[in-house]
Amino acid sequence: MKLKVENVSKQFKDKLAVSNVSFDLTEGVYGFLGANGAGKTTLMRMLVTLLKPSSGRILFNGKDIDVLDEKYRDVIGYLPQYIGLYKNFTAEKYLMYIASLKGIEKEKAMKKVDELLEVVNLSEHRKRKVGKYSGGMKQRIGIAQALLNDPKVLIVDEPTAGLDPKERIRFRNLLSSISKDRIVLLSTHIVSDIEFIAKEIIVIKAGQLIHKDHPESLLDKIKDKVWTVTVDENEVPKFQAAFKVGNIVRQNDGVGLRIIAEDRPDARAIQAAPNLEDLYLYYFDQEEMIK
């Protein structure tokens, strides 16, 4: 199974949101990293047929998804960044409606709805109107709808936003377990969501593909650029102004800073092993990052 993005660009009036991006996806989880406005959502929308590329094409198993039309939409599951809901529908009715949209027969749909409500821990609230759900519950019902048709291609945009840590771990494990025989593309700001489950990470900046590689290989690219240093509290602003500063930890002997810099930022600094947060910081602005 292969999803191929071939020289895809998307132009919105005077803004080039995605510029000549190409990559291939096969079975496994792919993490999609990029700052706000980098073009992640636009690219994902093109992958789920919500947007048509201005140029280039997307192929599923060698066939243009535009030509495949319904046949392609039959194999995809999509969780948008902001999940749409009908406030007066109960969770059960909502999922049954989505099942109809996905062409799932009633009997099969009922079983699948039961199963997924269990998976997303909403069985107890199945008869409650989704308009009365909390943000996290809405996100979980969104995850359930995306999985209803056992999609071969699952595309999820910021799926863990609004979930508590326990639910985040639960969802991460779920994705990891189902990714064996399907393509999962996961966009997030929360780098820990993809740190351990992503087969590859796709880094996109200003609409362009910067990297697509295994996490280890990407981390290897910044292995000499991560530093830790313990400084006096009044020195912190000076470091923040001069470098990309990640973690700031108050310690007994001062303040511990994690700095991303090409060269040693201070004589006291020592090199540290990079992680995905460092990678994110290296490519994107500090304020975009959420731990």
């Binding site: 929308r45 749409g84 989505i98 062409g103």
Partner: peptide
């Protein structure tokens, strides 16, 4: 308005 079009239009029968 509700954002449901993202789910509708990306589903098999969400267009025709």
């Amino acid at each position: 308005t509700t954002g449901m079009n993202q789910i509708l239009l990306s589903s098999k029968h969400g267009r025709k």
